[in-house]
Design a protein around this nucleic acid. Structure first.
Lengths: 334, 334
DNA sequence: TTGTACGCGTTATCAT
DNA sequence: ATGATAACGCGTACAA
């Protein structure tokens, strides 16, 4: 009486066995009359089948989990939309979690979902520690990682060529006449923070440009604003390559507040091509890393692995694409 | 061998009973020596307890679900952050779902989570149909709704005085000298779309201003851009009150593209105070509805109801707050 | 301290 | 067509 009704009470109420109730609810062959009696009982009692009991019996929960570091960064909602799209064929709920940069919370989420509550896992972590990788290898459900890891690890992954992405932005800045190009980098502890910085340093070396990296403490707007202040104290370069779009937008805002004209006094590029990059004024030149496509590919890999858990791991890759807007217009231009 | 190991295999491997394994894993009193043997077996087999089995036995899953219409709208990630914050004391994973405006998908999510997979539910739906309300009343787990509904319904809710919010924006526009004030409204099928439009109409009547509503097809940037085009075709007012911030930012972008100067030629206000409202240029005047606080309050209501499922329903309310920025500066001003 | 046995709510098999 | 019953994996009285 106190808790929710179970199949047993429905059966009693309808005067049938629990087997019959189950059959009716799952559309198996039953006599129309008894089926109706069962449906009535269900209605009267307000019975809703317990998904946990069902999941235990069936071995699947019809849930897929998706974990990212920070849903407040629009690139991740784009990615999520891609995942949803790629999962559309499957009748499964997508459960998202914004775990923050704390490894502990991510591990907790992975543990909490991979314990049978979700049939598959897609994760896109900024920080990829050995502990996390080890945990992912032990996970008892199919898992797809969005990000680059050692292929030896044997995980399905979706990657993007961030080195090439940086080069696209760098070369574009050069082609618009900028010769001093600084980077506002991501947090040093993060994988994209490091790889994008390294790509920048290589580009500098290749073009004999003196590197200058101002690291931000997070991939968000206010960190970008603070980075601009530091950048300015050290003397403004002609261009700044931000490690992602939210940082770049923070830089644009801070430049505006400080009276620094973009693109005339300072050219700015971002990475990710979030929607607000287009909307902002000046519109942000950026490099799309195909977040939506990465999400869709990850979903595809997950589905295929859920069908065949023994196939060799695959790596899907998305090519970066330069999107030229106002924030890097040549100084002579309009 | 094929599937994941169960507690039975761990017990066999360690030469103990499953009860002992369970005790060791749950930190009950056991002889150190046997505890170690169990831990070894767990390590060797890579055993991870099945959360579904545990949830079935314990009657709780340590998950809380949060459903919103569109996570791509930053106001919802703000709200989510509030929920997380309010849930911090509880050791539970927060599972988020972006259900889209489709009622069917929302109902599916509610059903899929309230069936035992989640111990509680917080939902903030744009569209509140009788079918949804009925479904929420039948949900067998504690549920909190963020949004205004008939108190008769007997649901814990968190509301905000959107009428007052609209008035704040309206009066502010009047105080800066604008006399023709149009509204770019939300989708007519949504609850906030309707209530904000009605509040606007009442404000117009009160101040003897001719109302003009241009409805947008969605609460997002591109719908705002399109609404601006229609607004312009009909002749620009001195000010436009947008039904939310993403619409307002779309209007700002379209105005910019069209060469319409904000705030000189057109003043613009939003609702929600998303972070990008501050970052944008011109910075957007808006009305904060305390999304983060609403999330925190909802979490609090949920926790309290999880403790006492019989207490009478509560309604928590957050007061709107006007945030004045550049997009409504007086025409005479700089 | 440890083991046996039961039950959580469901689906599916095997009788009838 | 329907009913009795055995799992699914876990936690925990109760017995030893």
């Amino acid at each position: 009486m106190s808790g929710r009704p179970t199949i047993v009470e429905v059966a009693a109420h309808a005067g049938v066995s629990i087997a019959t109730v189950s059959r009716v609810l799952n559309g198996k062959q039953t006599r129309p009359e008894t089926a109706q009696r069962v449906r009535d009982a269900v209605g009267v009692l307000g019975y809703v089948p317990d998904g946990v009991g069902r999941a235990l019996k069936l071995g699947r929960a019809l849930h897929v989990a998706f974990a990212v570091d920070d849903l407040a960064n629009p690139v991740y909602t784009q990615m999520m939309a891609g995942v949803e799209d790629g999962l559309a064929s499957r009748k499964a709920n997508l459960l998202v979690s914004s775990t923050g940069h704390k490894e502990e919370q991510l591990l907790e989420f992975v543990a909490g979902m991979s314990d049978g509550h979700a049939d598959g896992l897609i994760i896109s972590p900024l920080v990829r520690t050995p502990a996390l990788i080890a945990a992912l290898q032990r996970v008892p459900v199919p898992v797809v990682l969005i990000g680059r890891v050692d292929p030896e690890i044997g995980l399905d992954t979706v990657t993007t060529d961030s080195q090439r992405g940086i080069d696209l932005a760098f070369d574009h800045l050069l082609s618009t006449g900028r010769r001093t190009i600084a980077m506002v980098g991501g947090p040093v502890g993060t994988a994209p923070g490091r790889s994008r910085r390294d790509a920048y340093l290589r580009a500098c070396a290749r073009h004999e440009i003196e590197p200058r990296v101002v690291p931000a403490r997070a991939f968000n707007v206010s960190a970008g604003e603070k980075a601009f202040a530091r950048l300015r104290r050290g003397g403004l370069p002609q261009a700044v390559l931000a490690a992602n779009d939210t940082l770049a937008l923070g830089i644009l805002r801070a430049a505006l507040t400080a009276g620094v004209k973009v693109p005339h006094d300072l050219a700015v590029t971002g990475i990710d091509d979030i929607e607000f990059a287009r909307v902002f004024s000046p519109a942000l030149t950026t490099v799309s890393l195909g977040a939506g496509r990465r999400g869709r590919l990850a979903a595809g890999l997950l589905l295929s692995r859920m069908q065949d858990r023994t196939r060799p791991p695959k790596v899907a890759t998305v090519a970066p694409r330069l999107v030229i807007r106002e924030s890097t217009a040549p100084r002579g231009g309009r």
